[in-house]
């Protein structure tokens, strides 16, 4: 009876305080609890454009070219072609961009007629192509276009003939190229132990899942230095997922990889 009135007094104040307590808690939760697990993409970009170029050019360039520098320095090449090489190297699967760029100087609109099947052959085609078209700067765009297409056709036929013979080696080349990329990404993560002497070689067998995740890492041949072995193994796991060609049909070639690592290459 009396007490009921007594409790009435603090009712609204108590309600207000209770709400305040919850607002404080909610604010703490909303601002305090937020886990962001976004991966820094910059690291990957660097690896893709940088390291794998050197071995690739070493295999590819049969054209008259000055001796290219071996380590990851594709830029200073005094290339006879108008466009820098790395652009087409980064993505050998779609050379359309590289094909278009040299032509742009003469005429902006040029449909690409080549079948995208011979991805690995393209860059060479482009180089020769460009050399041919450059002197043929004509005033008549139709004629020029025709000439260009003819040249392309001839080029293609020649290529197809060669492609049949080289198909196997080209596949291997692409595979080697990607293995280089994979190794480059792993090597980036290797922390070489300071007490390591010499340049021992460690061979690992890596089993991959579709998508590039590392399923299993097995040491086949130890480098003789257990610290370096485990450093490489850690680096392989850290590099997960590994870069793979976008075509899933090719994954069978990459399921079991044999990777060789040396502290200095």
């Amino acid at each position: 009876m009396y007490g009921a009135r007594e409790q009435e007094e603090g009712k609204w104040l108590a309600l207000l305080l209770a709400v305040a307590v919850h607002i404080v808690l909610l604010a703490m939760l909303i601002w305090g609890v937020s886990w962001h697990n976004t991966q820094p993409a910059g690291v990957e970009a660097e690896l893709w454009s940088d390291l794998p170029v050197a071995p690739h050019t070493a295999v590819k360039q049969v054209a008259p070219k000055p001796a290219h520098t071996q380590p990851p320095q594709p830029k200073p090449e005094p290339a006879p072609e108008p466009k820098p090489v790395p652009q087409e190297r980064v993505q050998p699967a779609k050379p359309d961009i590289a094909l278009k760029q040299p032509k742009k100087e003469e005429e902006p609109r040029q449909p690409v007629k080549e079948p995208p099947r011979e991805a690995e052959k393209k860059p060479e085609a482009v180089k020769k192509e460009v050399k041919k078209t450059e002197p043929a700067t004509d005033n008549d765009p139709v004629l020029k276009e025709l000439m260009r297409q003819q040249a392309q056709l001839a080029q293609m036929q020649k290529q197809q003939a060669v492609a049949a013979a080289q198909a196997a080696s080209a596949g291997n080349k692409q595979k080697a190229d990607y293995i280089d990329k994979i190794r480059a990404k792993i090597r980036h993560n290797v922390v070489v132990p300071p007490d390591l002497s010499g340049n021992p070689e460690a061979v690992f067998e890596v089993t991959l899942l579709p998508g590039g995740s590392v399923l299993n890492v097995r040491l086949i041949k130890s480098s003789g230095h257990s610290g370096y072995d485990s450093a490489v193994e850690r680096a392989i796991r850290k590099a997960d997922p590994l870069p793979l060609p976008p075509d899933p049909a090719l994954f069978g070639d990459y399921r079991d990889l044999k990777l060789t690592f040396r502290p200095v290459e």
Binding site: E9, G10, L17, A18, H22
Partner: peptide, 21 residues
């Protein structure tokens, strides 16, 4: 749980005031 927490905090303050008084 939020409702229970709200109500219990309300009672905590209400009883706190009443008992102190």
């Amino acid at each position: 749980l939020l409702a229970a927490s709200m109500f219990s905090w309300w009672l905590i303050f209400l009883k706190g005031f009443a008992i102190r008084k």
